[in-house]
Write a protein that binds this DNA or RNA. Structure first.
Lengths: 217, 217, 217, 217
DNA sequence: GATGAATGAGACTTCATTCAT
DNA sequence: GATGAATGAAGTCTCATTCAT
């Protein structure tokens, strides 16, 4: 992950805030260690050592350890939430309304799997730390509220018209979908990452289970 | 929760190890604070203060902070995993093989909801800390392996014969069920505990979604 | 050592202060552990456990940890210093003035070796702790001043008359003798206790070295 | 001692590891207090106060209290053992084989007395703590094995040829010499440092006692 | 901008001693 | 007399943060 990720980080910020190379090294090290040991069990001095910078350098760029965490989480959440319905994926899913629900789901799941594969440490941090930091809850909540919910509700309406989903509240349907996608991905990448996974087949199964669950009886 | 829970704790141990009142106060305080702030952000001195004991008293009963956590988690996991298929619930579900899958699921979900309602802090601790403590992973893994998996596999076989589930691997089916039950419960009690929930209806929806998802197409 | 020593202790005190069995167990345990780990590194709770008594029991008999140490050291020093010129040894050495210096030394060294063999832990405690406890210094100083010095000076006068010692101050001669006896015994029992020692021969060598050193040139 | 010693420390390390002034203050304070009260009875907070640094500063330079002790002991043992037969003393003693044994001894004793005078706290620490720390035993053993023993054995062979020592094992002769030198020095500087000592005369006496003891009868 | 020595509050833990039972 | 739960002061050590260089 590292090499690609550090390039990403550098480019992404080059546009606006000129992320220096040292700053990127700090971010990388922090992501790695926060993911592996958790925020509280990771000391700033460890991060400094792993990033090959002085302890003080961290605080020159990030006013506190908490801000360092948020500097990781904020863009991370954006990358997690926004692209769901943006960029190339948007065109693949939402603009082709005629597409069938199952192919949409398939594309969606595969796309998020790719994201998790490329950003496993980030996802771990999110899942591990969300319970302890209200700021993360807010960021995630805001992202969901702003980028995800409106589009999904739209999508669900379309599906209802096509009579491929039960007549249940948006919240329930959404929860069912999210829950199953997340449940699969967490099991796949966090709980049993070392099992022999037949991803193609497994995705098919998940899609089938969701589709059949959603379908009006 | 407190009053009921402290009584439970005291009774449960009265039988074997004579949990003193002070020891129980320590456990209660620790459960509360670990759930609210997390293990690492909770100091033993805070726990002592909350339990109205001297800090040293904690260490007379629990050799280390980690052991205190495990003293909470170990019996908690047992209460979480074992009763699933034991005691009164066992008779309600597994001994009545003729029972339909949906009524089984309904009973199961309601039973676990009750448990979570009565043990919300414990469940929070489990979910929050599992990522950081291998001991918890092991305890949970062992409990699942010993008490849950064998019975569930049995159950799935029965269901297959009754042709009410798809022909998918046990792991996939089990993950689908667990994922949906857990997804609902986490959403219900942890993510949006303050929403207006119509539990009866919501359980019905979840059961329907699962049943339909499982059913062979 | 244990069995014999505990009997000794019990008898010795039976005469005056009625040492109970529990008290003796505490003393034994304390001696063992103070010798092995040192006074400061030994906790009263460890002693209690090793003596199979409750922690409080120690403090019923000995008002403080320091007093427990002194309860070991005081009689120990007496046994170390007093018998040097008392009891059976006195008759063997000092009453037989005609005896040659070398046979006196030989007897003395062998007698003290026996004592050390029987009381190794006690001797260790004395050597290890004397630097840290003024009370021990005082006890040892008093014992030396009262029991040892007068008699030794007497002896040295006799030796001078027999022209078997150099004409040097008592302090110098005494230091030479003590130093060599102690040097041998410490080497023999504390520094290299596991070497193959030919005690008979080694004692002979020490005696020869001392005698020749003392003899007027 | 302090002023001279701190200068020594600073210079000694300036060459290689740049011992900071604060680091030196910590060492000085620790040496002083370890010598006076012993390792276990000295707290790191006392050392910090005596050195006028924050307690945390100690642990920035020495990872643990034990390492602080060893940082004192290690170079101390080297200074104790190595120079015995090195530098100017070497030329005075060993390279002049024709020299008489007694003048060698005299030089040796005076040289080591000087060392002890300059390093009394260090010597106290060594004697007091060796019983409790295996690391010190090892350091001292290694120093003896590497620097002292080979040369002494050499010397003893020369002496045997000159027929000035008894035909006894190296170990016995060495123990006799060490024992008497150490016995004198310990008495002189540790047991009765406040007595009126006529050092010149006393050294003469010790040398005579040793020489006569060693001489073949 | 970068450094890393220094800080001091606070973490977990130990332990001699007390005291109600 | 004996117990052992309870205490709280003190111990070692960690760590986020500051600041002079």
């Amino acid at each position: 992950m590292d090499e690609r990720y550090i390039q990403q980080l550098l480019q992404q910020h080059d546009d606006d805030k000129k992320l220096t190379e040292k700053q990127a090294r700090i971010l990388i090290a922090a992501i790695e260690m926060f993911a592996k040991k958790g925020y509280f069990a990771t000391s700033t001095s460890e991060i400094a050592k792993a990033a090959s910078v002085a302890e003080g350098t961290i605080f020159r760029h990030y006013p506190s350890k908490k801000e360092l965490l948020l500097a990781i989480v904020k863009p991370g959440v954006m990358k997690l939430a926004f692209p769901i319905f943006a960029s190339d994926m948007a065109s693949k899913i939402f603009d082709q309304e005629f597409q069938s629900l199952d192919s949409m789901l398939r594309t969606f799941i595969k796309n998020r799997m790719e994201f998790v594969e490329d950003n496993l440490p980030l996802v771990k941090i999110l899942l591990q730390e969300i319970a302890f930091h209200d700021e993360i809850k807010e960021i995630l909540g805001a992202a969901a509220h702003t980028y995800v919910l409106p589009r999904v509700k739209n999508l669900l309406d379309v599906c209802r018209k096509q009579n491929v989903v039960k007549d249940l509240p948006d919240e329930t349907l959404l929860r069912f979908i999210i829950t199953n996608v997340l449940g699969f991905i967490v099991t796949r990448y966090l709980v049993f990452p070392d099992r022999d996974w037949n991803d193609e087949q497994e995705v098919e199964n998940v899609v089938k289970l969701i589709i059949d669950g959603l379908r009006p009886s």
